[in-house]
Design a protein around this nucleic acid. Structure first.
Length: 424
RNA sequence: GGAGAGAUGGCCGAGUGGUCAAAGGCGUACGCCUGGAGAGCGUAUGAGCUUAAUAGGCUCCGUGGGUUCAAAUCCCACUCUCUCCGCCA
């Protein structure tokens, strides 16, 4: 959520920056108008409250002096004020929730340097690592490769759960587990993140605080009886974990890594990535989340992205890093780098991680503040990034490490996690 | 699921209708003291809104309602935490 004060103080700048993300100017004007009306009401209300309070104090004094006549003189005025205050308060809270609702639908303000653009075609490549894998035979897509060797089972998954689910079997399941362990070990031991195993079901409020609601309700799985939501990413519990807390400046940054399955309805992506296990309703992900001081967050985004990249370097998978343009960054993000891994079946790079600086957008909703050494309070910045999407990493290994005879070599760093196996 | 206890400032904890943003303690900051540190002493110290303002005013004692001129305090509902019983991986 944006700070209404920022909008109020420099509406022109907000209009320009949000305009790059496709928010119409009228939306900002509407909000400013509501804000003005609300503040006028508050001022009026406050003077009535002040009068009522002084009447109350006067009554207390008169009662103490046993002056019943004096009390009766001003009692009616007090009653009248009380009624008026109550009805105005009702009206005010109606207006405030309207304003709040409007604010909840505004996306984060993009970082000034984010490239302007309409959609993913305007994203900018930042760097590449490795070369696209060359084969001296026709490589197979992972869905053929995995099905033939009994490692991936799409038919049975569809029988029990419908489309966009996959059963991993035998060594595929083992490799998935190995990848999870490898990634978490790397981030905890080398990069200094603390491992968290969070709940996978969260309150509606938690989804709201992390910006997944109200805008993306149709993207989420929820439980009707309890109104709990299955997490679409570990970012949700991790970024809301310190809700209503005040964190000491000296304890920052906080760095968390978490493995969880992610549940997404993938509404609106019909016909996209329909083959194989690229786009699933459930997938494993190792997620990185940081809480930082505002002045450090863009630097921390660079290091978080590097931490994620390193997973691919250890796995020796070719990738590139792109910066998303204003039209493609996520709702809560001010700046986003995507890491894309080379996938032979796509003959292209495919997203395997998305690293974002959310600035204070979630922290304001979740009320996560930091206490400065001089005692002042301000909202923390939060960042998140996949480190990495495990299912897509498995796919990348299958496709890039396949052999002529349809087997898959096991990357060096995973062998210890897989009982020494060199191929599957 | 049943019974009971509780929720107050960064933390602990007092407060059962008006003089309470709220005692006391801890913590923190500054000062005194000291060769230095500690102890000790003194002063300050909740958040948010409004405002040119550290002036004034307003709101906030788990959440939401209600009673009252006036609610941390009384009434109702809910949420969460803890203890005991039951059930259970």
């Amino acid at each position: 959520m944006l700070d209404i004060k920022v909008i109020r103080e420099d509406p022109q700048k907000v209009k320009i920056l949000l305009g790059r993300r496709g928010v119409p100017e009228e939306e900002i004007d509407k909000i400013l108008k509501m804000d003005e009306k609300i503040r006028k009401m508050i001022t009026d209300l406050n003077s009535m409250r002040a009068e009522r309070n002084s009447i109350s104090k006067e009554i207390a004094k008169l009662k103490a002096a046993k002056d019943e006549e004096g009390v009766n003189k001003i009692l009616d005025r007090g009653k009248m004020l009380s009624e008026k205050i109550k009805s105005d308060e009702d009206e005010l809270s109606r207006l405030q929730s309207q304003l709040n609702q409007a604010l909840l639908f505004l996306p984060n303000i993009p970082y000034e340097k984010v490239p302007f653009g309409r959609d993913e075609n305007d994203n900018v490549e930042i760097r590449r690592w490795g070369e696209p894998t060359k084969f001296n035979f026709d490589p197979q897509p992972h869905w053929d490769l995995g099905s033939k060797r009994g490692l991936l089972d799409f038919e049975r998954a569809a029988k029990i759960s419908g489309s966009r689910f996959t059963i991993l079997k035998g060594d595929a399941a083992l490799m998935e587990r190995a990848l999870i362990s490898f990634m978490i070990d790397l981030h905890t031991k080398k990069h200094g993140y603390t491992e968290i195993l969070p709940p996978h079901l969260v309150l509606r409020q938690t989804m709201l605080n992390t910006g997944k609601l109200p805008k993306f309700e149709e993207e989420s799985y929820s439980t009707t009886l309890d109104d709990l939501f299955l997490i679409p990413t570990a970012e949700v519990p991790l970024s809301a974990m310190h809700q209503d807390e005040i964190i000491d400046e000296k304890d920052l940054p906080l760095k968390y890594v978490s493995y969880t399955p992610c549940y997404r309805r993938e509404a609106g992506s019909y016909g996209k990535d329909v083959r194989g296990m690229i786009r699933q309703h459930q997938f494993d992900k190792v997620e990185l989340v940081k809480y930082t001081k505002p002045e450090d967050s863009y630097e921390e985004l660079e290091s978080l992205t590097h931490d994620a990249e390193e997973v691919l370097q250890y796995l020796e998978l070719p990738y590139r890093v792109i910066e998303l343009c204003t039209g493609d960054i996520g709702f809560v993000s001010a700046r986003t780098y995507d890491i894309e891994v080379w996938l032979p079946s796509y003959n292209n790079y495919k997203e395997i991680s998305s690293c974002s600086n959310v600035t204070d957008f979630q922290a304001r909703r979740a009320n996560v503040r930091i206490k400065r050494n001089n005692g002042t309070l301000e909202f923390a910045h939060t960042l998140n990034g996949s480190g990495l999407a495990v299912g897509r990493t498995l796919v990348a290994i299958f496709e890039n490490y396949q052999t002529r005879d349809g087997k898959i070599r096991v990357p060096e760093v995973l062998r210890d996690y897989m009982g020494g196996k060199t191929e599957i």
